[in-house]
């Protein structure tokens, strides 16, 4: 029972106007949680925000939260989904496909699946179709079978809602996450 493979869901959440918390949920292919990790909040000052400008979310999401989180998880996933394109940068230091997922309805143009495609559409029977996108062309091909197996049981956009709820609860219940 629950020997893998696993799938990771990496998210960066703004917990208030300034603070960021990174979180990763690892589940089995049925969506049952196997591991959850999140960071303490990153709190950029006003000056830091001005100095980092538009690069701040990416820097926080990839360098300060994403990479340390993926390093820290014990149940290594065979693929990782992110729900923000800027988080695709974690792929540099992670040895598994990292895919940006969203409901296909949100996508304006989706290319047909091909060996070198960076974006691909998957039609699921039990929920709306999804589109996945990656920075590394080989990732999609590598992850394709896993995704097809996964979406029989699980909508890959759904676990991000759980992460958001969990992080919200943490920030409410515990000062170290405020």
């Amino acid at each position: 029972m629950l020997d893998g493979p696993y799938v990771g869901f990496l998210d960066l959440l703004k917990t208030n106007v300034t603070n960021y918390i990174g979180a990763v949920l690892v589940t089995d292919f049925s969506g049952v949680p196997v591991e959850f990790r999140c960071t303490h909040p990153v709190k950029p000052t006003e000056i830091q925000r001005q100095l980092y400008g538009s690069t701040l979310p990416r820097y926080v999401g990839v360098e300060l939260c994403g990479k340390p989180l993926l390093n820290s998880i014990q149940k290594k996933p065979t693929l990782v989904f992110v729900n923000q394109e800027l988080l695709l940068g974690v792929r540099e230091k992670f040895n598994a496909p990292v895919l940006f997922v969203r409901a296909a309805g949100e996508v304006l143009t989706v290319e047909d699946a091909s060996t070198q495609a960076k974006e691909m559409r998957f039609d699921a029977a039990s929920f709306a179709s999804i589109s996945v996108k990656t920075q590394c062309p080989g990732d999609l091909e590598e992850a394709r079978q896993h995704i097809e197996s996964l979406i029989r049981n699980l909508d890959p956009t759904e676990p991000f809602e759980r992460i958001a709820k969990a992080v919200e609860a943490l920030t409410k219940e515990n000062r170290q996450f405020q």
Binding site: L2, I21, P33, E35, C38, T39, V42, I47, E63, P68
Partner: peptide, 20 residues
């Protein structure tokens, strides 16, 4: 001297899949 260095949050969490 204004530091631009942002402190990374240390990861916390739990493995729920315990030893069978």
């Amino acid at each position: 001297s204004i530091s631009v260095h942002l402190r990374a949050g240390s990861p916390l969490g739990k493995v729920y899949l315990g030893k069978q």
